[in-house]
Design a protein around this nucleic acid. Structure first.
Length: 515
RNA sequence: GCACCUUUAGCUCAGAUGGUAGAGCAACUGACUCUUAAUCAGUGGGCCCCGGGUUCGAGUCCCUGAAGGUGCACCA
């Protein structure tokens, strides 16, 4: 059902009228834009400074202004600019309009005398939201605003819908996400966020390129969705008559490439997890994983710290940034603490003194932490960490040496096989990345998969499944390797000071509305 | 999944105690050749989220449902 209100009807009539007089905007195929709004302002200011320098400074202010006006008469800067008209002020035979393009806004001065009676009459009928092309010369209005004096003006696209109100813009979150294009038109800070997101991705690639990494692409449709603890989306591949899943991580394929000798690889790609939606989770999100041969998690800590600092400096302009009112300092070396020490520090419970799963569960009971029967000491430590520690990890902190039970793809610590060489970086209480010294012992890996299968049988729907081809790759031989996974959306949230993951996703997942 | 909140004109929002639905912007008509959320005069515009109930009468009270937001739970 098409929703046609009075205003829309009027716009369609205006379009029909234009078409009837042979001025159908939709027949126009191109417009030669010579400048963005920002270019007009910048070039005008430069020229203005140049012209002013030619004027005798001993003249009175009035005389100088006259001299400048005279100089402009012979030095006009002409531009062709295109954009959407967002404001319009008609004063009889002269008008001002504000148009917006990728780089910002520009005021356009339109008069009957410059445009001619016919075109000026047409212009008066144009609506807010219409896209116009304007050719003219730059000047400064009496109020001092650099503007474009229109000599030619053409309607490039007729907008048949009504844009939100100019004062408040579009605030309805539902509509902002469902009609992001309107959000982008009305809310400049939204546009800035997505421009920044693009810069962040570009700078990540720059940074990794500088360290000799190559970007690769691996399958999204897989038969065994492994490498993380999450429930996958399932679908069916008709040609193969086979059920497949959407990937939940990039890990197991990228490690195969390390086996293949690519040495330093990364992938930035969408992964899919069949879980809830909230301010920090979207079912499809962007993960970056990288793997580097011949290094370990220490090397990954160095890389992570350098990369975060580099991104903050290049994208935000400083390694000290503000997120939701809190200063986050990435200029100093990041804090390091083991998970067990963190739990001791914030909960007072020292798991170094805990020798059995039963003892761990008893402690959990005493601290009102819910757990499942299948949970072991390592799982309990993790639950303690989540309850007592995460919120304190505001400044960048590497939490290291996780229990082996929750780390099926990670190398054991040589000094204590109950723990692994792993770290997560926390900033503002949020996990920003997850890294390890990669487990490359195929016999140990097989045993870990077996433990995961047991967990799955015991009710852990998110446990990994044995991946025989991955095991085969490890048997071929993977060098000692360090690897990391970064949640790109959370990184973008941090660097753009965005409160919700939806604010950094152009089209966040929404429930469909039946009409 | 649970709790709380929101849903009224194209947009942003008002609508105590139940009694014919309002404003600003936007639109339309007119005036206006330097405006800045332009101004001035006038006009039109509504499935009050859907469905049921109570009532003489429901935007308002009650119930079911939908979508969205926030928090919690879940998510290493």
């Amino acid at each position: 059902m098409e929703n046609v209100n009075e205003q829309i009807k009027i716009r369609r009539e205006k379009l029909s009228d234009l078409q009837a007089m042979g001025k159908d905007p939709f027949q126009i195929t191109k417009y030669d834009v010579t400048a963005h709004s920002s270019d007009v302002k910048k070039l005008f200011e430069e020229k203005e400074a140049e012209l002013k320098s030619e004027i005798d400074a001993s003249l009175s202010e009035e005389e100088q202004a006259e001299a400048l006006a005279a100089l402009w008469e012979t030095n006009k800067l002409t531009f062709a600019v295109a954009g959407r008209m967002l404001l319009k002020r008609v004063m009889g035979k002269a008008s001002f309009a504000t148009i917006t393009d990728l780089m910002g806004n520009l005021q356009v001065y339109v008069t009957r005398d410059s445009l001619g009676v016919d075109d000026y009459q047409l212009f008066k009928k144009y609506d807010i939201g219409d896209i116009i092309g304007v050719k003219g010369y730059a000047f400064r209005t009496r109020a001092g605003e650099i503007s474009l004096h229109a000599e030619e003006l053409v309607l490039l696209t007729k907008s048949l819908q009504v844009l939100p109100e100019k004062h408040h813009g579009l605030t309805n979150t539902d509509m902002r996400y469902r009609q992001r294009y309107v959000d982008l038109i009305m809310n400049p800070e939204v546009k800035d966020t997505f421009v920044k997101r693009s810069q962040i991705l570009k700078e990540i690639r720059n940074f990794l390129d500088g360290r000799g990494f190559m970007e690769v692409e691996t399958p999204m449709l897989v038969s065994n969705a492994g490498g993380a603890a999450a429930r996958p989306f399932e679908t069916h591949y008709n040609a193969l008559d086979e059920d497949v899943k959407l990937r939940i991580s990039l890990e197991l394929y990228l490690k195969r490439l390390i086996v293949g000798g690519l040495e330093r690889v990364y992938e930035i790609g969408r992964v899919f997890r069949n879980e809830g939606v909230d301010t920090r989770h979207n079912p499809e999100f962007t993960l970056m994983e990288l793997y580097q041969a011949y290094t370990d998690y220490e090397g990954m800590m160095e890389l992570t710290e350098s990369m975060f600092r580099y991104l903050a400096e290049t994208v935000v302009g400083s390694a000290v940034i503000e997120y939701q009112g809190t200063v986050i300092d990435m200029s100093k070396p990041f804090e390091r603490i083991t998970m067990v020490d963190a739990v001791t520090k914030y909960s007072g419970v020292d798991f170094n003194n805990v020798t059995s799963d039963e003892e761990a569960k008893k402690l959990a009971d005493e601290h009102h932490i819910e757990y499942e029967d299948r949970h072991k000491k390592g799982d309990i430590i993790n639950l303690f960490f989540e309850k007592y520690c995460e919120e304190h990890m505001v400044q960048p902190t590497f939490v290291m040496d996780h229990p082996i039970e929750i780390s099926p793809l990670t190398k054991k610590k040589p000094s204590d096989p109950n723990y692994v060489e792993r770290f997560e970086l926390f900033i503002y209480g949020r996990e920003m990345c997850n890294a390890y010294s990669e487990l490359n012992d195929p016999i140990d890996q097989r045993a870990r998969f077996a433990a995961q299968e047991e967990a799955f049988a015991a009710g852990d729907e998110e446990a990994n499944h044995t991946d025989e081809d991955f095991l085969n790759a490890l048997e071929i031989g993977m060098p000692p390797t360090g690897g990391i996974g970064y949640g790109i959306d959370r990184l973008v949230m941090l660097l753009t000071d965005s409160a919700a993951i939806r604010d950094v996703l152009l089209f966040p997942t929404m429930k469909s509305v039946d009409k």
